[in-house]
């Protein structure tokens, strides 16, 4: 499941990586950025929490010229005269402008928000939800990936954000030091929901190695198909007709079967024949099974 998500989020997708103080999801976020860069996509990172150097650290091997960092780390609230990006610029118009300004218009664009928690501290959740929903609707951005520190917010805020997401990855510490557990909930377009739990670790070059699937909630493997038996195989009587038998049967004239001419004569209605006119209505719906149907109750 995790490798599938890394291969690409569907168009109009919103992926939320939920983490907590116990286990950081930033490594996974970097893996997602790396995977998108390797797919020749333009990646726009809105960085509130780490500096550009720290974010680029570790992704030396991948093509980084398509990685656009929008610095909201140095001045997130616009206290200086020339802030690059502030919390209050988090709306569709500003983001569209930002993305159109710096990237090639034809390239598929992934917007990475590091992190939503920073924005949620200063902007009302309903405004953030609205912007995320507008981003989902398409336009400038093909897919959105957001990091969310779930333990920083009230349960309803986290729920509201995750309610909009097409995929949610919740990262929790694993049993061993370098391992982590990812609980993945993916919503497909048809409305089908898939949940999986995977143990993974992230290597030096930011590739994700899935160790094992902790639990499997997918559909169970169907059992070996039941052998189809032919019920007419071992009968004590004959059910089949041979060709000569069929011929003889078709030759046989049945009683009350008339010739075409006679049928037409009989079917031809005289001028004085009547017709039945009948219009069904609701009261014809008489239920014989119901003993009380004729009662006026």
């Amino acid at each position: 499941m995790l490798p599938e998500l890394l291969q690409g989020v569907d168009a109009g997708g919103l992926l939320i990586i939920q983490d907590s103080a116990g286990c950081s999801g930033r490594h996974l976020l970097k893996s997602f950025i790396n995977a998108a860069l390797n797919r020749e996509e333009a990646v726009h990172v809105i960085g509130f929490e780490v500096s550009e150097e720290e974010l680029r650290d570790g992704s030396q091997g991948s093509p980084t010229q398509r990685l656009h960092f929008h610095n909201a780390f140095s001045d997130p609230l616009g206290w200086t005269d020339h802030p690059a990006f502030t919390v209050h610029q988090f709306n569709l118009e500003e983001l569209t402008h930002l993305v159109k300004q710096t990237s090639h218009p034809k390239a598929a664009t992934t917007l990475v928000i590091d992190s939503l928690s920073w924005i949620l501290r200063h902007v009302s959740p309903s405004a953030v939800c609205k912007t995320l929903q507008q981003l989902k609707k398409g336009g400038a951005v093909r897919a959105t990936i957001g990091l969310l520190h779930a333990d920083m917010h009230q349960r309803g805020t986290v729920g509201s954000i995750c309610h909009l997401a097409t995929s949610v990855i919740t990262v929790a510490p694993g049993a061993k030091g370098d391992e982590a557990v990812a609980k993945i909930t993916k919503r497909s377009k048809s409305g089908k929901v898939i949940q999986e739990e995977e143990i993974f670790n992230i290597k030096e070059d930011l590739t994700v190695m899935v160790q094992s699937k902790a639990s499997h909630t997918g559909p169970k493997q169907p059992g070996p198909e039941e052998q189809e038996t032919d019920p007419t195989a071992n009968l004590t009587f004959n059910l089949r007709l041979s060709d000569t038998e069929r011929e003889a049967k078709e030759k046989l004239a049945l009683p009350f079967v008339f010739s075409k001419a006679k049928k037409t004569a009989l079917l031809h209605l005289g001028p004085g024949s009547g017709r039945i006119l009948y219009e069904p209505d609701a009261n014809d719906d008489y239920d014989q099974e119901d003993p009380d149907d004729d009662l006026d109750v």
């Binding site: 009302s124 959740p125 309903s126 009230q154 805020t157 509201s160 309610h163």
Partner: peptide
């Protein structure tokens, strides 16, 4: 009652 209806009922305690 969801956040998209401008309602913060589902967001805050």
């Amino acid at each position: 009652g969801s956040a998209l209806w401008d309602d913060d009922l589902s967001c805050h305690d």
